[in-house]
């Protein structure tokens, strides 16, 4: 709306509203970061003193480091599997040559709409009945299923804005199927595939519900470890781990913004 049409009291109210909302959205994150630099034994905000001792504790505590490596390993595997499977599916969906394309799109997006807890309990029961005790592979497969819709969405969004005649042109000029995929379609969808890959990493790394249902000794991811500590007796070391996770999220958001543009992601 042209700016002279907005009364000044509305501008003022909007400013106040935005400030309050932003404080609300950021408060818990700021508090976690603050606590992590505390010198005291106890969780307190504002923190008492300033030190890096809890980071030292975290980096030398095998409970945290092993959970960290478990999380990283799963997240990296999920990034690869979800991007390959979801990306290939998105290319097929984009071409709209399969029967029931609309149904297929819903099929691929369904893990996104179904609450994770329902999937988590099904996966636990199914795996136990068919394969026995859950393992690293169970979690890998489970996270891949949850992450695929994000890759499908980002890749489809990018492909739908690309020039469809480029592939036709390549075909008439004699490019084979593989060549067309490698040199035309995949480069066209690359920003979407890239953003989807980073989403997949983020989802797997942060995921708590499936990981909690499939938890067992030796299969503890970082969010599960933090959850366990919170149920028991948290000390500022939990804040230090959480801060590391927040920092990683910030990096991922910046990367996704570079690849795809957050504006676009927000409206798709």
């Amino acid at each position: 709306m042209a700016s002279f049409l907005i009364p000044s009291w509305v501008r003022l109210a909007a400013r106040i509203f935005i400030v309050v909302t932003v404080i609300f959205l950021l408060a818990p994150l700021v508090v976690v970061v603050g606590v992590s630099f505390s010198e005291s034994q106890f969780i307190a905000f504002p923190p008492d003193g300033l030190s890096l001792r809890w980071y030292q504790t975290v980096l030398s505590d095998t409970v945290y480091t092993s959970a960290f490596w478990t999380s990283i390993r799963i997240a990296l595997l999920v990034t690869v599997s979800a991007t390959v499977l979801g990306g290939a599916a998105a290319i097929a969906l984009h071409r709209r040559m399969l029967p029931g394309s609309a149904f297929l799109a819903t099929f691929f997006l369904s893990p996104l709409v179904l609450p994770t807890i329902i999937y988590a309990i099904g996966m636990l029961m199914f795996w136990s009945a068919v394969f026995g005790p859950v393992s690293f592979v169970t979690l890998w497969i489970g996270h891949t299923v949850i992450a695929i819709p994000y890759v499908v969405r980002t890749t489809l969004a990018v492909l739908s804005e690309s020039d469809p005649f480029l592939e036709e042109a390549a075909r008439t000029m004699g490019a084979g199927r593989i060549q067309r995929l490698l040199y035309v379609v995949i480069p066209q969808g690359l920003p979407g595939l890239g953003a989807g890959a980073f989403f997949a990493f983020n989802i797997s790394f942060d995921e708590a519900v499936l990981s909690l249902f499939l938890r067992k000794p030796g299969l503890t991811t970082l969010p599960v470890q933090i959850y366990g500590q919170l149920e028991f007796s948290p000390d500022p070391s939990v804040a230090a781990v959480s801060t590391i996770m927040i920092a990683l999220t910030v990096v991922l958001i910046l990367v996704i913004d570079r690849m795809l543009g957050l504006q676009r992601f927000a409206s798709t």
Partner: peptide, 12 residues
């Protein structure tokens, strides 16, 4: 930013 931060961390 909060959306992409783990629920466990935010709840903490």
């Amino acid at each position: 930013l909060p959306l992409m931060t783990s629920v466990v961390v935010r709840t903490f």
